[in-house]
């Protein structure tokens, strides 16, 4: 259980890191928290010849608010979100999500951007990014581009990042007044990868839901949105019956694969329950 040999670089600036990526491309792997990468290396499922450690680069874990947007530095640790990072609804939502991510010592090291770059379909942050329509900022020596979450997650463990690009920022809506956000997941043991999860955000005006976003994770090769659940919610007043109907519509539109952990049918039923629970939490 020891990793294969690798060369180690610890750049002290973003420019140095990008230059190393430009030079080494596919040969190099970024290490942020290492909580997924190092187990894969210890099992020798991953054998990167070169590791570029971004932990000494200043400013990569800054969080700021810019207009209606929460801008999260890619190296922000999961634990940082356990207490709300913003007084806007997104802050409380992210704290609820963070409590579900792995275990306490994993949250000390694992990072938001690392999770997105790893793109595990059962990752909570991937579900949040996709469901809430985050924008992801990638940088390379040739420039900077913003990738919508819808285009970022391509398939399991595969993103739109090029080998010379570093994910530097995640931009999420703050969700102002009138917005209600919730998250729910189901795992059989504390800290396990969830069998299904749902994130929701709804804006209520005049007693009815005017805007809604619903994201699902753990049920396909990437996180997905649920336009079917959204369609049920729009124009309606929030109620337990509505939440159940939205969950049913969301579940009916999915066809999760079964695996050793759960059958597809069971996962589909969990989708129904997770959408309902996330909505219930949002409006509690």
């Amino acid at each position: 259980m020891k990793p294969a040999a690798f060369a180690y670089h610890r750049p002290e600036s973003r420019a140095q890191a990008l230059a190393l990526l430009a030079e080494h491309g596919d040969e190099a792997k970024i290490i942020s928290g290492g909580q997924s990468l190092v187990p894969a290396m210890n099992f020798r499922l991953a054998r990167p010849p070169i590791l570029i450690d971004i932990n000494a680069i200043p400013g990569m874990d800054d969080i700021r608010e810019e207009g209606g947007t929460l801008v999260i530095g890619a190296r922000c640790r999961h634990a940082h979100f356990e207490k709300p990072v913003s007084s806007a609804p997104i802050g409380l939502l992210l704290s609820r999500v963070a409590a579900n991510i792995a275990h306490t010592p994993i949250r000390s090291r694992g990072s938001f951007g690392g999770s997105l770059s790893h793109a595990d379909p059962a990752s909570e942050w991937c579900c949040v990014a996709r469901g809430l329509e985050a924008e992801l900022v990638a940088e390379s020596t040739t420039g900077r581009r913003t990738i919508p979450a819808a285009a970022f997650f391509q398939t399991i463990f595969t993103t739109a990042l090029r080998p010379d690009e570093l994910l530097t920022e995640i931009r999420l809506p703050l969700f102002g007044p009138g917005w209600h956000c919730g998250f729910a997941e189901y795992a059989r043991r504390a800290g396990d990868f969830a069998l299904a999860m749902a994130v929701v955000a709804c804006r209520v005006e005049g007693g009815v839901i005017r805007e809604a976003r619903v994201g699902l994770g753990g049920i396909a090769s990437t996180p997905v949105t649920s336009p079917e659940a959204v369609a049920v919610l729009l124009g309606q007043a929030p109620s337990p019956a509505l939440f159940l109907a939205a969950g049913q519509a969301g579940a009916d539109a999915t066809s999760p694969d079964g695996d050793i952990h759960a059958s597809g049918e069971y996962r589909q039923d969990l989708v129904r329950a997770m959408i309902r629970r996330a909505l219930t939490q949002a409006f509690a």
Partner: peptide, 27 residues
């Protein structure tokens, strides 16, 4: 376990609990 599951190697680094099997010494 040497892959971050069992927690036997938990130590405190810069005030935070971490799995010391998932950190390289150089870090």
């Amino acid at each position: 376990c040497e892959h971050g599951v069992c927690g036997a190697c938990t130590i405190i680094v810069n005030g935070a609990p971490v799995r010391s099997c998932l950190m390289f010494a150089v870090q």
